[in-house]
Computed example of a mutant assay.
Amino acid sequence: MTIPIRNLYYLFCYAWERYPENGAVEVGIEDCPDLPNLFAQVLVNGLNRLLRRGLDRQYLSAEDELRAPRGRLLLDETLKSGSLDRGAVVCRFDELSVDVLHNQLLKATVRLLRCDALVLPHLSAALSAVEKRLSWVSDIRVTTDLFSRVQLSRNTGQYGELLRLCEFVWRAAMPQEGGDGSRFGDIIRDEIRMSAIFELFVQNFFRLHAVGYTAGPENMRWNVDRNGSGDHSLIPIMRTDLTLRSDTRILVMDAKFYAEPFRWSHGAPKINSSHLYQLYAYLKHAGRGTTDKPVAGALVYASPRGRSIQRYQIDDHDVTVATIDLSQPWPAVHADMLDVLHPSSAATSDRQPTVPA
């Protein structure tokens, strides 16, 4: 799937809850030829802003030999080390430091991208300059579980978007043959990773733009008769990608990212039946307890070529199947997304999906 860099930038901005004001694009983004360079540019821009504001500092416990005692005197260590002969004592004290986990993860990601062969020389130099300004931060060996250990506060909220970028970079980096260094896989072809990004994009797009709706994933329980003898704990919970609720309507959405949204049968495109079954189950449960509100559904696909918005009536439910062409200019992508939310015959395209060459 070919997606312009500008659109990838918007896609990740929405996914990571970093909404560009008035559609503005950061400096240098348009010149990025691929994702590693896009991530490098966003990281450089973000860290330069962060460094201007000042890195987050926290109190860390330290132990050292001091001539001017402070904190807690460690008598045993002082005697064993012979510090008194040097006119000093060993103390344990709290010290305000930038050498904390979230700064360490940022520095490690800077180094990872700086060493990537795909990153352009001027961006590699910019990353090196940023790395030098992080000299007080320790080098660590990154494992992806470290990101879940980071605890941010209101005062460190500006770290959130950068750490989400860093985590994605580390998960996308693939070991090179022989175990030396790392390189990026073809992220756009990775349907698992890009499905997660596209799902977050759809969620946050409608959270921001669906005026009059509450929007978010929902857990739904199957309408199982309590008189049955089966073990009810075995029944799984359904979780929607996105459920939008207003005073007059309920809309359940399922977001999909595939190289080919539709299956092909005898040379003709067909909607994936399992996707329809899944959406149908959501529709039958989303309106429980609200008999006065119509329940509609939408399958929203990222499309490799051409847009298509098809509308159906299935068992009294309005169902929209939309393929969003991410290769078109972003204003058109934005308009097509809103068209899924607000059906309009003037904005609807009946174009059939293009048969791949």
Rank of each mutant, 00 (worst) to 15 (best):
S61I: 08
V300K: 11
V300A: 09
Q58N: 13
L127Q: 12
M1N: 07
A281F: 10
A268S: 06
K132C: 09
I5K: 09
M337N: 00
S233D: 10
I309K: 11
K107W: 05
R164C: 08
L242N: 10
G23F: 04
N227W: 15
V300G: 08
L66W: 03
K270L: 03
M194K: 03
L35D: 06
R111M: 09
D56A: 09
F39G: 00
D99R: 04
A268K: 06
S124A: 13
R133H: 11
A172F: 07
A215M: 10
S344H: 11
A210M: 12
F201K: 01
H232W: 03
L162I: 07
V44Y: 15
K132F: 12
S128M: 14
W170E: 04
Y19C: 00
F201L: 09
D186E: 01
E95S: 02
V295P: 09
H122A: 15
D325C: 10
R18T: 06
L134Q: 00
S61A: 06
L283M: 12
L134S: 11
G289Q: 04
A335R: 04
D139Q: 00
L244E: 06
R351I: 05
V224T: 02
D225A: 05
Q158A: 06
V355N: 03
G28K: 14
G185T: 02
L74C: 10
A172S: 10
A268R: 12
D116Y: 07
Y282W: 15
Q104E: 08
V340P: 10
G230N: 14
R86V: 02
Y10E: 01
S97K: 00
N223Q: 09
Y280K: 05
V321Q: 08
N227Y: 08
H342G: 00
H102G: 04
A15F: 00
C166I: 04
R53Q: 15
A125H: 14
W330Q: 14
R53P: 05
L43Y: 12
M174V: 15
I188V: 14
R305W: 13
N48Q: 15
N48F: 14
G71R: 01
Q176D: 13
V319N: 07
L79C: 02
A125P: 01
N103I: 04
T348F: 07
S344P: 02
G185N: 06
M1Q: 01
I314P: 01
S148L: 11
H334E: 11
R133Q: 13
E95L: 01
N155H: 11
R86Q: 06
R288N: 09
T354H: 08
E161Q: 00
P343A: 07
L79Y: 03
R193I: 02
Q313M: 13
T214M: 07
V355R: 15
R193E: 07
L11W: 08
H275G: 02
S274I: 05
W170L: 08
V300P: 04
V142K: 10
F147V: 02
F147G: 01
V150W: 14
Q58I: 01
W264E: 01
V42H: 15
R141D: 10
R67I: 03
A172L: 05
E191K: 10
A24W: 13
T143R: 07
